[in-house]
Amino acid sequence: MSIVKKRLFWPSLILVVMLGINVFTSNQFLTIQDGHLFGTLIDILRGSAPLVLVSVGMTLVIATGGIDLSVGAVMAISGAVACLLIQDLGNQNSVASVLLIIGIAIAVALVLGLWNGTLVAVVGIQPIIATLILMVAGRGLAQLVTDGQIINVQSGPYSTLASGFFLSLPVAFLIAVAAVVLTILLTRRTALGLLLESVGGSPTASRLAGISARRITVMVYVVAGGFAGLAGLIYSADIKSADSISAGNLIELDAILAVVIGGTALIGGRFSIIGTVLGAVIIQTLRITVVALDIPDKANLLFKAVVVVALCLSQSPEFRAKVFGRFKRRPAVEKVAA
């Protein structure tokens, strides 16, 4: 198989092209400043952390044939819980207290994931409806927690989550990398990935093969909740406040898009974590490229749409055959026998 036909070739190419554009348009693509790496590339890596986290969780959910619309709301809730508790601290710079609070916020997010998973796997509600409940109610809950206000915090340790550097790399990026590596190890070094794909491929057949489809389904929603919670913390640490309206707003759509770009089918089954990560980074790079190219605000979404359409087309073998078949003196692609 030639490299051009590899599934992730075209998304990778688009990413490289966009990064290339940024090399020329930004005055600092990658330099060293204040003893750590700095520049547009680092902005992209740091900025994509929340989306990568949410998308990886979404990948697992989608692999089981489900979907999680509530990730944005869970982000808002975890940020709200964390900021509320930090605000009440006597010393907002106490590392131990902040770590404890981060733990509490993530625990809350895991419980919310458990709620989703229970609705889907135990009560038997369709995933899109089950998670819609928390998507809508969750933001209300976040506003209830913050009393409708934006809570500002001045906590050094908390801000480190988003803007800190470790080994001259952004902490947020390292958190995302750790989460990705952990997920890959967990799904591919154990049999979890196989069982997940099996449940996504056919829940009935999986049950009859002795797989506890229910337990696995609940688990992926819990993981997705936990990752969304972590993403919410990074987001709120970045803006040093809990904003229940805009935290994670519409991120579920970006996450689903990242999963699709990464080559995981929405109907479940086979999944690719690496593909999803690539998709998430592309979406974040696109955001930054739009700014770098000075594309007017009004045309912003249109530009994004064009790139996404191009990406999706590039992954369709039929489309590639049509476009490139003309230039090559090759016989038309033979229809494959059923």
């Binding site: 069982l195 099996s198 999986s206 009859l208």
Partner: peptide
Amino acid sequence: TEGIIGDLSVRENIILALQAS
């Protein structure tokens, strides 16, 4: 519908029940 998992490979389908147990 209740036997094979079409997307998975022959190998994965064969080991599925043993792995599940």
